[in-house]
């Protein structure tokens, strides 16, 4: 077998990333989009931690911060979703077009 190198982890991270981007660009449901964003962040975290194996602990510390950030962002995003839902009774991204020309 091929030994598992850092590159493998990076590829996995890239795959996760792509999945997350597809989710963001494609799904109509706002909640699913937010979850896709979490996927993207996780991909990034994986990347960081994979490199920290080589270069020291800095990557891990950064990953912690990213998780913290993700938490904050999720909270705020969901808060916005609730506020929006109260107004429009929908969770579809397509119908959030108030800034349309």
């Amino acid at each position: 077998m091929v030994p598992i190198t850092t590159l493998h982890y990076l590829v996995v991270a890239a795959a996760l990333f792509v999945l997350g981007v597809i989710g963001v660009l494609t799904r109509r449901n706002v909640v699913i989009v937010l979850m896709s964003i979490e996927l993207i962040l996780n991909a990034v975290n994986l990347n960081l931690v994979a490199f920290s194996r080589i270069y020291g602990l800095h990557g891990q510390v950064f990953a912690i911060f990213v998780i913290t950030d993700a938490a904050a962002e999720a909270a705020v995003g969901l808060g916005i979703l609730i506020a929006f839902f109260r107004n429009k009774e929908t969770v579809n991204m397509d119908e959030v077009d108030l800034l349309k020309w």
Binding site: A15, I32, L39
Partner: peptide, 11 residues
Amino acid sequence: TVIAGVLVITR
């Protein structure tokens, strides 16, 4: 992880 990711975006 990857399969779970796929599930996330498709359900």
